[in-house]
Design a protein around this nucleic acid. Structure first.
Lengths: 200, 200
DNA sequence: CGGTTATTCGAACGAACGGTCGAATAATAG
DNA sequence: CTATTATTCGACCGTTCGTTCGAATAACCG
């Protein structure tokens, strides 16, 4: 049998290789989507033989899901704290958007993928995926903030889903456009939201 | 040779059959997307043999593009008039959204498809497609209205693309949610926009 | 009618692709 | 060292699916 140190090292190497594969997969998935990405290409880009990919992952979809899970989980972990801070709904909402922007800017390729990828799915297969839980958790928090904010007169009197959708579109554009200039400042977010969200 | 009446009738029948195929294709594409839709299924749903589809269209992609072209062209034709009416930017913008809502409600399956479909593409192949011209034309008009509106103080002072994106998200939600209740009233649009667009 | 053209269609083709196999190599243990 | 296990990989397999073929039928014309 192996000694403990060896076992640990091997586990670490294994994890590192999985990471490399995911990195290559991200590149290809981003460019081609779920169907368009070929296993052969992912293998080539990540620098492993095709069969080796299957030594680490059991299917193409598992790779895809691992990527999404990693993304949504990371994002959620970053936001968890902000979500429960006892500020007003409107201020909490804005804080969360700022935090999301920061997180996204720390790993743009991953999050660009994250926010485009769900469109690759039909509703059916979507709901069996593990990552979906974290996405839902985030949406739920934002929705509740909006609902709360509406009753307190800090948001326009509109269907909350609509507000979320509009804010989502706006925010997505805000964060992902201008990839050339580094990142969005907090002031810009503040100003931009101020333009759309009245009250307070 | 055939006489004129016969030729006409046959052309009409041919067009009608193309229409039937497109109708079936719409059903399948909507449900499965470009990759997910199988030619066999489109054939089955539209009631023709598989080879017959290729007697009318030269490829799966041609069917897909024909569908998109038909949609964007129809939509543009509906809007053309409204776009050039000499009203204020803000009022013209709102009129156009109303008109879009009406048009969409007149053939929901087609337009639901139209507004979801572009995501099936990569940027590359997107720009060679004929329908893209009409989509761009529409976006351009809306963008110009927003830009004009901003300088006249009828829209918030924001990056026009962002406004368009936010309005797009909002409008999309507004029109396509609640498929159960018939259609959105003009008043609702007016009110909803009023909440987001200050000035005027 | 017979000849010609238009239309229809299932069977067959061939390329693409996800996934597996089995052999080869490297790492580890005793 | 040998034995055992972990890892790597290109060749291969089976399926799926867009497209084409070739024969059959229908429509039309003189």
């Amino acid at each position: 049998m192996e000694n403990t140190a060896t076992t640990d090292r091997k586990a670490a190497e294994r994890a590192a290789r999985k990471e490399l594969i995911l990195q290559g997969a991200l590149t290809v998935f981003k460019e081609k989507g779920l169907e368009g990405a070929k296993i052969d290409e992912i293998a080539r880009v990540s620098g492993f033989g095709k069969a080796t990919l299957y030594y680490y992952f059991s299917s193409k979809e598992e790779i895809f899901n691992a990527l999404l899970l990693h993304g949504w989980l990371s994002l959620w972990r970053e936001l968890e704290e902000t979500a429960v801070g006892g500020d007003s709904p409107r201020r909490t909402f804005i804080s969360m958007l700022k935090k999301i922007a920061e997180t996204v800017n720390a790993d743009r390729p991953l999050y660009e993928f994250l926010f485009q990828a769900p469109k690759s799915f039909t509703a059916e297969e979507n709901n069996r995926a593990e990552w979906k839980a974290y996405q839902n958790r985030l949406y739920k928090v934002l929705m509740e903030l909006i609902e709360q904010g509406i009753t307190e007169g800090q948001f326009p009197q509109m269907e909350p889903r609509l507000i979320l959708k509009a804010m989502g579109g706006l925010f997505h554009g805000l964060v992902f456009w201008g990839a050339d200039r580094g990142s969005i400042t907090e002031d810009e977010i503040e100003e931009m939201l101020g333009n759309l969200l009245r009250g307070n």
